[in-house]
């Protein structure tokens, strides 16, 4: 028995349930890998089309947008190779929407585990984002095929732009996913807010129209804000990577794309850091609130 006079050597002791957050997730890579594999393999379980759905859903959405924006509203004429333009922007926003909403739901979805076993809980949103990324790859494959058909031969700079764009989106979704996932445990309102943010993501970045059109209608400050949106930068990076070199150059990339992208990267890094802090604050109550 421990009494006050009994000196105890406290080396080797640790406080249960205190980890190093995201760092611990990467220390337990094997578990992360299994969780991602589980997410990927159970996603379309019991559906005949299986992974075909990850082509069908975005393609349907794509053709609706193409028809409405391109043909009915005539964007087709204003933007060269509009089909590629639209596709390269849409898959960026799809990646964001999918990763962000999966991450937000991840803690509640895994409540059986969160309530009973101590794990670095960041594991769940991060696995959710990775699953979304896996989901994104077939869409990239389609885009690669389509843009190759119109003469796309990637340069190193273009590949770099694509990678930077994907990185920005992933960090953005991870950071927001950590915040919303944590809040969602106590207030399921978070899930509904996510729907609004997804809508904003689609319409608030130059996916369905070009950035120069928005510049004409927005006041200066709002225009700056619009260009600062990390998603705008990511979409424009994808446009640059997959689409710009296949056009006649009628629509140039935004003038400050490099600067805005770097700012975007800083913003999403900050959001990820904030996400981690918020998550840790809320995490203490996860097991009892779920």
């Amino acid at each position: 028995m421990l009494t006050k006079t009994d000196p105890v050597d406290l080396t080797g002791f640790s406080v249960p349930g205190r980890g190093n957050g995201i760092l611990d997730v990467f220390r337990r890579r094997y578990l992360l890998r299994l969780l991602v594999r589980k997410g990927v393999s159970t996603r379309y379980r019991n559906s005949a089309l299986g992974w075909g759905w990850s082509y069908v859903k975005p393609l349907t959405q794509y053709f609706i947008y193409f028809f409405v924006m391109g043909i009915v509203l005539g964007r087709n004429n204003g933007i060269d190779n509009f089909a590629v333009y639209l596709l390269s922007g849409i898959i960026v926003v799809n990646l964001f929407n999918e990763a962000f909403s999966n991450a937000t739901k991840s803690i509640v979805d895994n409540k059986a585990l969160v309530k009973k076993i101590y794990l670095p809980r960041e594991m769940f949103p991060i696995a959710a984002v990775i699953v979304a990324f896996v989901h994104f790859l077939p869409q990239v494959a389609v885009l690669v095929v389509v843009s190759s058909l119109v003469g796309w031969v990637p340069s190193l700079l273009e590949l770099g732009a694509i990678l930077l764009g994907a990185l920005i989106v992933i960090l953005f979704a991870t950071g927001l996913g950590l915040i919303f996932g944590a809040v969602n445990v106590s207030y399921r309102d978070a899930q509904n807010l996510v729907e609004i943010i997804k809508m904003l993501a689609t319409w608030g970045s130059p996916v369905l129209y070009s950035y120069d059109l928005i510049a004409r209608v927005l006041p200066d400050w709002l225009q700056t804000l619009y260009m600062m949106n990390p998603l705008t930068s990511a979409v424009e990076l994808f446009h640059y990577g997959f689409w710009f070199s296949t056009t006649d150059g009628g629509l140039q990339p935004p003038p400050n794309l490099v600067r805005d992208s770097l700012i975007g990267l800083l913003i999403v890094l900050a959001i990820t850091a904030i996400g981690q802090l918020v998550f840790r604050r809320f995490e203490r109550r996860f097991a009892q609130d779920l």
């Binding site: 406080v15 249960p16 349930g17 009973k116 101590y118 203490r284 097991a287 009892q288």
Partner: peptide
């Protein structure tokens, strides 16, 4: 037990 396991604080 949950406190000892680190599930609760």
């Amino acid at each position: 037990l949950k406190l000892i396991a680190g599930v609760l604080e």
